[in-house]
Structure formats: structure tokens, C-alpha cells
Amino acid sequence: MVREKITVSTRTLQWKCVESAADSKRLLYGRFILSPLMKGQADTIGIAMRRALLGEIEGTCITRAKSEKISHEYSTIMGIQESVHEILMNLKEIVLRSNLYGTCEASICVRGPGYVTAQDIILPPYVEILDNTQHIASLTEPIELVIGLQIEKNRGYLIKAPNTFQDGSYPIDPVFMPVRNANHSIHSYENGNKEILFLEIWTNGSLTPKEALYEASRNLIDLLIPFLHTKEENLNLEGNQHMVPLPPFTFYDKLAKLTKNKKKMALKSIFIDQSELPPRIYNCLKRSNIYTLLDLLNNSQEDLMKMEHFRIEDVKQILGILEKNFVIDLPKNKF
């Protein structure tokens, strides 16, 4: 009885950045607090956040390099002090920041002699290099160094066997991990009944710790959404007893049920990038400020047609995808 009295808290949870520091362009640090939490909650959130920060955040990296003159990774180019492999290792070090989806191209085109650094990379506008001083190669002769790069946003790390590319491009085993380190600690007060969660985040600069925190919590929430609708899920499973174990995309099926209930709130939290749209359509939608499914549903087909570079086939494609994944029809006209 007494216990209940104490646990009642009127204050809402609040977070605050208590410390942030930039040791270098490649090492940002931030410390955040979340309070007031009840006993035990800090631990629940803390470990989940730490794991999400370390494992769930996407990063942008150069994944492939291509150059005409190279015969293989372990050869040398006349007039360059580094071997090709060393150049590739240097390219791996480059930290990028982007709001990219999928892949894009970049290139280096430098004439020697001189040092080639990261600032010589010609990038699409939505990709940004954080540390321009990153050394790539040093040219000792007046030769032209042309490297085509492929940039990708992804999660975790990739180790690709180079056999898939016979076109003379060389994979750089990329590490898409913007968070260098994360830690959580708990401070309890009020006789151990209240807790403050401290989260420390070190990033490699492509995200600020704050953004990392945001990304991590969003990714964590995305993972938890299915649990919001336990009942429907159970029904769904009962109906599909004979089906093979559900792939991770099942939560789209659950979303289908969801839309029938007209829970537009949920639609708001579904971003269009989750609907496997082709990059071109995705970019078009994004340009006209359509981010979530709700935004999309608020537009009619005609509205969509008005957009730049948008064709009737694309609308059909969107419809197909929506129908497949969400069982939603785009309104013919605005209602």
C-alpha cells in the first residue's frame, strides 16, 4: 500500500544532454540523462539503448572503388607512393555523412604531383565528408589518378568476396558503424526508488551523439511496434498455422490489419522507406515532403501525378506495393 503511494510519479520523462565534446572531427562525445525513472527502468532502457546504439545504427561508407589502370589490388601505380591496397585501406577510413538510401556514385579525379586527400572526392550533394584531411594517396609524378567510388548506406559490416565483380572494381570491406562506443550508467536517488539513466555515446563524427541517440531510439521503437498489436498478431498466426516461420517482414501484414482499423496514428510512424519503393520514386516522394505512409495516403493519385518526374507507371507501382504490403488503396480523389 505504502509502496504504491511512492511510485506514483507525476513528472514526465525528460532527457537532457549534459555534456558534449568534440575531441576531433572523428570523435564526438555526448552524455545524456533520462529521468526520472522508476527503479529498474533505467537498466531496461540503458542496455537496450546501448545495444541499439552499437548494433542498429546505419552508416555511410565507400564500398567499392574502381580504376582503369589497376591490374589488381596488390599492384602499384607508377608515381604513387602507396600501393593500391593501401589506397583502398585509406578509402575505408573515410567517414561520410549522408541521407542516402541505397547506393550512389562518387569519384576522385586528381592530377599529381601532390597529396590526395578526402576533399578531392567529388560527391553527390547529399553526401558529405567529415574529415577532409584524410589522406588517400600521395602522387609523386604528374599523373592522373581517377577512381570511381560507390557509396552505400548500410548497417553492420560487410566482407565481400571480390568474385562477384569482374568489372575491375575492388570491394572495400566497409564498416558502417558510426557509434564507436556507448555506455550507460545508473544513478539512483530518493532511497533508490528513482533512477537517472546516463548514456554516454562516442561517435565517429558522421552522426552527432544526439542524432545517434535519436536514430537508435527510432530503430528500437520500430522493432517494438509489432508488440503494440498483440491480439491481431495472434489471430494472424492462427490463420496461418501451416505457413513457414514468418520472415521479419511480417509486421507489414500486421499493418494491413492495422489500416482496416483506420489507425492513422500508426501510419504516421511508418516511413515510406520501409515499403521497398524504387529509389527514384522514393526520392520524388521525399522531395515533395512525403515521409510517412500517412503523408502518402493524404495525397490522391492526381496529387502524385502533379509531382515532378512522376509518371503513371510509378503510381501503379506504388499502388502495387501498397496493396501487396499494406492492403491500402490510394484514394482516387481526396476525400
Partner: peptide, 14 residues
């Protein structure tokens, strides 16, 4: 093991 599964020190370093 993935780095988040490894034991970590008090400053969070796995």
C-alpha cells in the same frame, strides 16, 4: 561475437 555482446568495461568499451 558481435561487439555489443562482448563483456564491456565500466566505460563501455567492449
Amino acid at each position: 561475437l558481435p561487439r555489443q555482446d562482448m563483456p564491456y568495461l565500466q566505460d563501455g568499451r567492449p
